[in-house]
Computed example of a mutant assay.
Amino acid sequence: MSLCALHVVAAYDWVAARDGATDVLPGVCLVCGSRVGVRYPSGWVCAVCEWRLGEVPDGEVAPPRVDVVYYARWRDRVKIGTSANPRRRLAVIPHDEVLAFERGGRLLEQRRHVEFAAARWPGGEWFRLDDDLARHVAELSAGEVDPWARYDRWRSEELARRG
């Protein structure tokens, strides 16, 4: 079906009003720092963490705590560790890329160390990226190009739960 320019624009506006239109945010998201948002007639929402643009997280509220198990690759090794602040933790660990995050704390980290013990380098939290570990990381990151986007979404969800 061919439409004239006027009707194409009308159809676009109808879909954008219903489903939103992804675009560059007019300002940075105050929760996760993203510059990509979804524009609705009622306002902007961050495309990464879904925080409403312009809403300021309450400064008196402690930042949300989200414990994660991280999988960070450095050369031919993968570190399986845990942190409540992975940005700060990974800033001091040599790594080439963050492969995935998994929501959980020390207990989950210990279970993963046992699960992948056959690939463990002696005396630490570093593992060879064998087929089992690669498959697990692929399952964790399925549908997510940037693991930090998932982490930011978890943080946003924790903020939303508070109020």
Rank of each mutant, 00 (worst) to 15 (best):
D132T: 15
D130N: 15
R112T: 10
D132Y: 14
A100I: 01
S156V: 08
F116W: 03
A117D: 11
H95Q: 13
A134N: 06
L140D: 13
W121C: 02
R153W: 12
R111W: 07
D146I: 03
Q110E: 14
E125A: 11
E97N: 06
A142N: 09
D130R: 14
A118E: 12
E115A: 15
I93W: 08
L159N: 06
E109M: 12
R88I: 10
Y151H: 11
E102T: 08
R89D: 06
L159D: 02
A149P: 03
D131R: 09
V145N: 13
A91G: 15
Q110P: 03
H95W: 01
A119R: 02
G104E: 02
F116H: 03
P122T: 04
W126M: 01
V92H: 03
R150D: 02
E139C: 14
R150P: 08
L129E: 03
I93Q: 06
A119C: 01
I93E: 01
L140V: 12
L108C: 03
G104Q: 05
A119K: 01
P94M: 00
E97P: 02
V92S: 15
A117H: 09
L129H: 04
V92W: 02
H113W: 11
D130A: 11
R155T: 08
E102P: 02
G124N: 07
R128V: 15
R89E: 04
E109P: 05
R89C: 01
A100Q: 09
A134R: 07
E125Y: 08
E144A: 10
R153L: 14
E109S: 12
W154A: 01
L107M: 10
G105H: 05
Y151P: 00
A138P: 10
R106V: 10
L108P: 02
E157A: 12
A134Q: 12
S141H: 14
P94N: 06
D152A: 15
A118V: 04
A118K: 04
H95A: 01
W126K: 00
S141C: 10
A91C: 06
G124I: 05
L159H: 12
I93M: 05
A138F: 14
G124M: 08
A119M: 04
G123W: 08
E144S: 07
S156R: 06
R103C: 09
A142Q: 14
D96C: 00
F127I: 09
L159R: 10
V137T: 13
P122Q: 11
H95Y: 07
A149Y: 14
H136N: 13
L108R: 04
G104F: 03
A134E: 12
Q110T: 14
D132G: 15
G123S: 11
A142M: 07
E144I: 12
V137L: 15
E97T: 11
W154G: 00
R89H: 10
G123L: 06
R112G: 02
R135Q: 12
E144L: 13
